[in-house]
């Protein structure tokens, strides 16, 4: 299999996802409700106490990248449900019997989830601007942030596919999905700076991929301070590569 054949499968999967979204955007709207509540209610109220050291950034602006990261990774984490549905129907069997290599299938489906997450971001960012969040005025930074959302979500979607291939049923998957999302969100710098956490939590935050995603997004979207960005990107790309590889090695298990 040559590189362009991998690319072909991946692009087909992304196209499939875009066509799905075009036919039915309900999920997109429903998933937008929660992040909007964070920005509309939680941000202003907690911000009014001035209790969290955010530098001189308004609190709602401070949490906006975290809320964006959380809602887009949630889309990705629950993408495994699609895979479980495709397992119960015969779609995965058919894909496995097709010439597409497992790696391309997993990478393709992960990036399809990344695409869905991107649609989510394109929804949330303008809303935040409407609410008065001051986005750092540099279009290159904004585009970089969107690319970052895409790759980060793709990585989480591979994690989700990996979990789906181990758990296999919808019910078990739903349970675990929740268990992953909340600790990742609260155990990161999404809502408060890492150095304000107890030491054990700080340790967790330092290995939590969410921390790096939020840090990168905050630099690109709010502060314009991107000194940490190269490290963040390296970590996100390693996270993607490792998870897509493990998930594709494990992929055949799902149809056993």
């Amino acid at each position: 299999m040559k590189l362009n054949e991998y690319l072909r499968v991946i692009l087909s999967m992304i196209e499939l996802e875009i066509r799905r979204i075009m036919h039915d955007r309900t999920e997109l709207y429903l998933r937008a409700v929660q992040p909007l509540l964070w920005l509309l209610v939680f941000g202003p109220i907690v911000g009014s106490f001035h209790s969290i050291p955010t530098g001189n950034i308004p609190y709602t602006d401070y949490i906006m990248p975290g809320v964006l990261a959380q809602s887009t990774t949630t889309v990705a984490i629950f993408f495994g449900l699609v895979i479980i549905w495709e397992r119960e129907s015969g779609i995965l069997k058919k894909l496995v019997a097709s010439p597409s290599p497992d790696f391309a299938i997993v990478a393709g489906r992960s990036m399809a989830a990344g695409t869905r997450a991107l649609f989510q971001a394109v929804f949330i960012i303008p809303f935040a601007v409407l609410m008065g969040v001051k986005i750092f005025p540099n279009p290159l930074y904004l585009i970089s942030a969107l690319i970052l959302v895409f790759f980060a979500s793709s990585g989480f979607a591979s994690l989700s596919i990996l979990i789906a291939s181990i758990l296999k049923t919808r019910e078990r998957f739903m349970g675990l999905g929740q268990v992953i999302i909340l600790p990742m969100f609260f155990g990161s710098n999404a809502l408060y700076p890492v150095n304000s956490m107890p030491p054990l939590l700080q340790l967790f935050a330092s290995v939590n991929p969410m921390t790096y995603i939020v840090d990168a997004l905050r630099g690109l979207l709010i502060t314009g301070n991107i000194s940490q960005l190269p490290l963040d990107i390296v970590i996100i790309l390693i996270f993607d590569a490792v998870l897509i590889s493990i998930a594709s090695l494990n992929f055949k298990r799902i149809i056993e």
């Binding site: 087909s12 499939l16 066509r19 799905r20 069997k93 058919k94 097709s98």
Partner: peptide
Amino acid sequence: YVPQEMSVWTDISGYENLLIYSKIY
């Protein structure tokens, strides 16, 4: 190969199913 279970995507059109499969192949 056509498996025993249903094996097309139901939230897109019939034409789109063929289109995506033809691209995958």
